[in-house]
Design a binder for these strands. Sequence first.
DNA 1: CTGTTAGCGCCTTCAA
DNA 2: TTGAAGGCGCTAACAG
Lengths: 333, 333
Amino acid sequence: MDKQTITIYDVAREASVSMATVSRVVNGNANVKPATRKKVLDVIEKLDYRPNAVARGLASKKTTTVGVIVPDVTNMYFAQLARGIDDVATMYKYNIILTNSDSNNEKEVKVLNTLLSKQVDGIIFMGNEINGKLREEFKRTKTPIVFAGSVDEEDLYARVNIDYVAAVQEEVKNLIDRGNRRVAFVCGPLEQAINGKFRLKGYKQALKSAGIPYDEKLVFETDDTYKTGTLLQPALMAVNATAAMVTDDELAAGIMNGMSDADVKVPDDFEIITSNDTKLTEMVRPKMSSITQPLYDIGAVAMRLLTKLMHNEPVDEKNVLLPYGLMKRESTK
Amino acid sequence: MDKQTITIYDVAREASVSMATVSRVVNGNANVKPATRKKVLDVIEKLDYRPNAVARGLASKKTTTVGVIVPDVTNMYFAQLARGIDDVATMYKYNIILTNSDSNNEKEVKVLNTLLSKQVDGIIFMGNEINGKLREEFKRTKTPIVFAGSVDEEDLYARVNIDYVAAVQEEVKNLIDRGNRRVAFVCGPLEQAINGKFRLKGYKQALKSAGIPYDEKLVFETDDTYKTGTLLQPALMAVNATAAMVTDDELAAGIMNGMSDADVKVPDDFEIITSNDTKLTEMVRPKMSSITQPLYDIGAVAMRLLTKLMHNEPVDEKNVLLPYGLMKRESTK
DNA sequence: CTGTTAGCGCCTTCAA
DNA sequence: TTGAAGGCGCTAACAG
């Protein structure tokens, strides 16, 4: 069980200095004479001493690890965010404990608690339904939290996103301008504020500006999966939709393939716009037009923000909005 | 900085017992009178006490976290493995520290060391080039390691895979049987044993069985990315290949789309078989025929194996081979 | 510039 | 069944 028996005492003894001195050189403290620093460094090298981060964490109350709660890494959207997070974390000498929540509130609460018990220095949360219990837990902890690609209606937490309302509104407007009077809105759970409050709002605003009445039958609430998308074609046709604004790329790919399989031509007979601009948009045929968001950057900026919070540096704006774009590919006319 | 000030002492005092007793109930030790157990539990609840995992880790030399080294979570193949790992880890009350190595040896060594310094109880490694330095580090540590979806030529470490040689051989044989005399082998870095030693071997064996001479010009060593795939069409045509066995799904999708864009019909004019059976195979058009491997399970089984190693349970077979299959979809005739 | 001395919060014998 | 006491390996004052 002794994975690593050489402690700071061993190198102290071997170098004929006190452990405090060893600690100093290990931590890059300036107050060490170059000569003794070298001596210590040599012994460290010779003994292959590796500081025990756990002990260090207990003594310093800092673990240099942050918790990352994500619905599902298997979804490219989150995978790309996670990658941005990890890269910046590494840059700042942090590691991430990655946990999948399936957007399940119980799991989120549970996992949050185990992360806190592990004394993570900060948390990055992805998921958009901050219900009572979870919000309570968030409020109780003093550990810094930032949301990545996740909105916070209450405006309490630091977060980085794009302007979902504006982006959806623009895209839907374009769809309408191109002659589509019946544009479907296909989204993930409406309970999630990002869908129910933000994106839906953009959708409604676009309709309103165009003087088109809002028709609930054109709103399809789904579970954001590819499979579900493939099954949607009949329903979409049934309500005479000629285009769809979709909130997830895998879901959109499913819809598109479902259309193609039913011989509905995209984009000629049906236009599709998706929302996340993951690499998937380029891999399918036709390539999917999408709202573009800097996925990697959202993660990276979120992590950067978290480092500031953890180091008690001032942050000028809690609600970071990164620029979005509209990328026309082949699923729209 | 006092994220959480209630310690085991607080609940001990409040419950009028010793901290040792509190420790016992927290750890489910049987030697506690039911009455005092309840008393303690009540106080824990009341004070909202949460054991400090770091302190616990220092005292017990167990952190209940494992390190996971992966080339890139952004690649669906690894994302799906990672998901399997996390689910089983959670099941056994472990968390995972996820790190991206980009298959870069320096990063791998570095990250391995920080994981060890953080006293992870075990490590799951993905990546297929175990070079000198990395192998050395692996050998030095007593921390259990298992490879997931990664081969080990030296047969030293526990690992879970499929039989790459046989799978590739079968698929290439099918390709040949269907009349393809010039089958390209498009793979990731040949330095990686999984490509250079295993898959290539299967490819060669299939050729040999069919009495077709091995032609080096038909072997395309790439970086496993979609983009690279899209660029390969001219080169593939130049060597008169009529089919390709590809070792990565994103890469294969790129090749396929590159073909389509150049008006080469898949599968009529060019057949493609890929290797990982990620969800991507179903999302592209035509859907890609693939060797099927139980991705999630490879991760899950690897993690399960690791728990055994960590708990010093016996493992009957270090080299676990999960069953593979051949899924004919639309990219082959 | 360097050493001494307390802890950090918990687990784990050893006694009682 | 319970308590006392000694670490786990390191950081962080505080002296000197």
